[in-house]
């Protein structure tokens, strides 16, 4: 089993760290992982994206152009990556700021309101964990308990007091995608 994922949005939305936590979660259940960020000039103020591959086998190319799942967090990324989802694949997107919604009929599309939930939780920083929660609900490749372990591994110890809030955000994400 191999899952090829792109996460794309604005710099500052937690795109890269979400990918890192996903990769660490994979390691926690003994999978092979790769995390390949865009590191171009776009990182300075524009879009940020990362390709994460989780696999039970040795990973061949860490750089790919088509994906099993796309997690899209702004309009520019929607324009860039909607067509990159493999037929039969999954697209999860946050509706906030999206002016042109995805139109593909050969993939499964979930719209979520992670931005709205994050503001209800009174912390913009929970946004990416809400999105990650939604992802693991519809693609249960990594288990919640391993995401929590991954979170612990990837956060410096001085932020460990924030883990309960992140757990709450993950659970909220799992709930809202059920409603989508």
């Amino acid at each position: 089993m191999t899952e090829e994922i792109i996460i794309a949005g604005f710099g500052g939305q937690g795109v890269l760290s979400m990918g890192k936590i996903m990769a660490y979660s994979g390691i926690m259940q003994d999978m092979e992982v790769s995390w390949m960020p865009s590191y171009g000039p776009e990182m300075r103020g524009g879009t940020a994206n990362v390709i994460v591959i989780l696999s039970e086998n040795r990973i061949s190319s860490p750089i790919i152009r088509t994906f099993d799942t796309a997690i899209i967090l702004n309009q520019q990324s929607m324009d860039k990556f909607e067509q990159s989802v493999k037929p039969g694949g999954t697209l999860i997107y946050d509706g906030n700021g999206i002016t042109r919604h995805p139109e593909r009929e050969d993939i499964t599309i979930y719209q979520i309101d992670a931005a709205g939930e994050a503001s209800k939780m009174k912390s913009a920083k929970t946004f990416n964990m809400i999105v990650l929660g939604s992802f693991i609900k519809v693609k249960p490749i990594v288990k919640l308990e391993n995401v929590l372990l991954g979170l612990k591994k990837s956060l410096p110890e001085r932020y460990h007091h924030m883990i309960p809030m992140n757990e709450e955000a993950l659970l909220r994400g799992m709930e809202i995608i059920g409603e989508a």
């Binding site: 390691i27 790769s34 860490p62």
Partner: peptide, 10 residues
């Protein structure tokens, strides 16, 4: 190269 330098793996 830049890809192997920037990517994360186990």
């Amino acid at each position: 190269d830049g890809a192997i330098g920037q990517m994360m793996e186990k």
